[in-house]
């Protein structure tokens, strides 16, 4: 392999692992709640800015900042669930109402963040990060940290879904909602945990994006659109699908910037999304229902 290929694969892994953290919660909410949750971008944003405050205002170290990000986003997820989505679920609102409400949450949070920090782009890590070479590819220490922690989180999630009671309940509801209800699983209770977990993962991803690139209030919408592309490509209805979709998206994105000028990146990604909608709307791992 040439160093170019190694570099491309390396960058794709880093981008993909961060996208996977965002996509999991987005896809789970769709699986269990039956709606596309744009508010997922809001918790991502709160995680990112929470991490920024922890790093630069409170002068915490990185491990503590990760916890702050996860906590801020998880808390926001709980509030969104109990103040809005649980009520809508109780009144049996259609998915359109969920979707529009989640859009409302996204722009309200985006505005809140902009009130505090302005619309400017924020740099988390000024200056170059120390780096090392790996088979001819340059990897910064931050990237190694991001990659290691993302994979640890993904692994922990696999364990969670298979070993814990709540994890199994989540899988049961995603698989067959009516059957799960019939054996006494509370769908609302499961939904609560989906929001907590999904939001915490998205919050950590927000911190990572800030460390690796930059953050601005508009990043929330970008993140949720990326999660949406990853989920649709991989298949929203499956567990492994969104993760695979996220890595595929990371690869496409990094490949696209070597072929097209980087300002057309979003156009390339969304064109592929639209192709998927027409050619394989259930995604790579989806099942037609």
């Amino acid at each position: 392999m040439t160093s170019f290929t190694v570099q491309l694969l390396m960058n794709s892994m880093i981008t993909g692992s961060v996208y996977a953290l965002v996509a999991i919660g987005f896809a789970l909410t769709y699986n269990i709640g039956g709606f596309f949750n744009m508010a997922h971008g809001a918790v991502f944003l709160l995680g990112a800015y929470g991490g920024y405050v922890a790093l630069h205002v409170l002068q915490f170290g990185l491990p503590l900042a990760v916890l702050v990000s996860a906590a801020a986003a998880g808390l926001a997820g709980i509030v969104a669930h109990s103040a809005v989505f649980r009520r809508l679920a109780l009144s049996e609102a259609p998915s359109t109402v969920f979707f529009i409400s989640s859009l409302g949450i996204l722009i309200a949070v985006e505005g809140t963040v902009a009130t505090g920090f302005g619309y400017e782009t924020i740099v988390f890590m000024p200056g170059p990060s120390p780096s090392s070479t790996f088979f001819g590819a340059r990897v910064t220490d931050i990237q190694v940290y991001i990659l290691a922690l993302s994979f640890a989180l993904l692994l922990a999630l696999v364990v969670f879904f298979h070993m814990t009671n709540i994890g199994k309940q989540i899988r049961a509801v995603a698989d067959d909602r009516e059957l799960a209800k019939a054996v006494g699983i509370s769908v609302n209770g499961v939904m609560f945990w989906v929001f907590v977990l999904g939001s915490m993962l998205a919050g950590v991803a927000g911190l990572f994006v800030g460390m690796e690139h930059t953050i601005r209030p508009g990043s929330g919408m970008v993140a949720v659109l990326w999660a949406m592309v990853a989920s649709i490509m991989g298949g929203v209805g499956s567990f492994i699908g969104p993760v695979v979709g996220a890595f595929l998206l990371g690869f496409i994105e990094n490949l696209a910037v070597t072929v097209f000028p980087s300002e057309w990146k979003a156009t390339v990604v969304f064109s592929i999304l639209i192709l998927f909608f027409f050619l394989r709307p259930v995604g790579l791992f989806g099942v037609r229902r």
Partner: peptide, 9 residues
Amino acid sequence: QVLFGLLII
């Protein structure tokens, strides 16, 4: 923006 978001919700 905050206001519009809240109005929608």
